[in-house]
Design a protein around this nucleic acid. Structure first.
Lengths: 213, 213
DNA sequence: CCGCCCGCATGACACCTGTCACGAATTCTT
DNA sequence: AAGAATTCGTGACAGGTGTCATGCGGGCGG
């Protein structure tokens, strides 16, 4: 019998926190997982900051975390959740199978990585395996991550390449990052070379696809 | 009592088809909507072609349709479903609140347009209202669509701008679309002017954000 | 203390981009 | 049938891009 008011009622259920910036997806995932008898959704978060706050408050067994969220992104939120809640394991649930994302997720301490192409039936199983201490990662994605996951760009190169991808000129980027236009062009040129593109627009697209920016 | 084998059992339930290229999202939406006593998910589709085929086979009351799907996109699929199945209403359920998407969706015959930021509780209600013959559109998005939804770009301009957004040079684009490099530059210049950007990269980004490409 | 490395900056050069004017061919409207 | 509009193409010019060499200052390691 469950003791009323117990901080963590020893019901045997796996307690879940779901973090996704899209309310519909968040709610739908909650509905899906609640159908499983042994899974219990105890909280929701709409962005990275909320995810950290709610994880600290609720101490869920598993936190399902999207990557691209406004403000604090899911990778940084993962790092903070893992650091603050020893008993909480993080399962990344993301739209894009980007090698860079997987690598960063594992470096941040995530226990699993699932893309939204995965059949719905497999999500509950992934949650259970993560809770049991297993790693859950698509093998093909893991292999891609080994070769492509490592980000070849420096912090500054990533910074200027993001702006270039939005169409800003070198002088405009220079104003944003407080460097000279010539330095920005040198950084862009280096980034273009590392990514193997023919210009800054293509470089930004490739880096984004790989999860490097 | 339901007659066994009846093509459309007269149960009073609203029969749904869910089209989304992400299996997890598709399944989760199905789980969410199945919780409602009067809604019945009768089929799923992972792309636009499947959506059309399944709609013709199942004759659902409402089809939930994502926009960005591989192959036939959700807007074109909507057009075909509406043309082929008189009794099926289409509710667009998409990630991006792009004015151009809304306009194209309504032009394609969609009865509703919901973004995935919407609270999960409102989805079932939106389905019921669409089924009842109502239009379901966020008023703010409708207003934005009036001013920004109309695509100012010609067919050719859209075509070359997409390539430019991926970083292709004018000669490379010319090879893809079978025009001269000079013509491509003229088309890009016209598109840049219409969109109000300072270069092709920014123009591609703006057009994509507005749902024009 | 010295040498090396890294980040930032400048300048030069070749090439690409964006704009504009003009013309030819095709299509559409009157 | 004729005129207008649209699409495509060419050429010229100014500005932006990408590459490369070089130099300076600060930090780090020996």
């Amino acid at each position: 019998m469950v003791t009323p008011g117990a901080a963590h009622a020893p019901t045997g259920n796996i307690r879940l926190l779901i973090a996704d910036d899209q309310a519909l997806v968040r709610g739908a995932l909650g509905a899906l997982l609640s159908l499983e008898g042994d899974l219990e959704v105890v909280g929701y978060a709409g962005n990275g900051d909320e995810a950290v706050t709610e994880a600290q408050r609720l101490r869920p067994d598993v936190c399902l975390m999207d990557v691209q969220m406004p403000g604090l992104d899911g990778l940084e939120a993962t790092r903070l959740v893992v650091a603050a809640c020893e008993s909480t394991r993080v399962l990344i649930v993301t739209t894009f199978a980007k090698p860079g994302y997987l690598r960063q997720a594992l470096e941040a301490g995530a226990s699993g990585f699932v893309v939204k192409d995965t059949p719905a039936e497999q999500l509950a199983e992934a949650v259970r395996r993560v809770h049991a201490g297993s790693r859950v990662v698509d093998p093909a994605l893991a292999e891609a991550s080994l070769f492509e996951g490592a980000n070849p760009l420096s912090e500054r190169e990533r910074e200027v390449l993001k702006y270039a991808g939005d169409g800003l000129t070198a002088p405009a980027i220079a104003a944003e990052v407080f460097l000279s236009a010539g330095t920005v062009r040198n950084l862009l040129s280096a980034a273009i070379g590392k990514v193997g593109a023919r210009n800054r627009t293509a470089a930004a697209r490739i880096a984004q696809d790989k999860g490097w920016i």
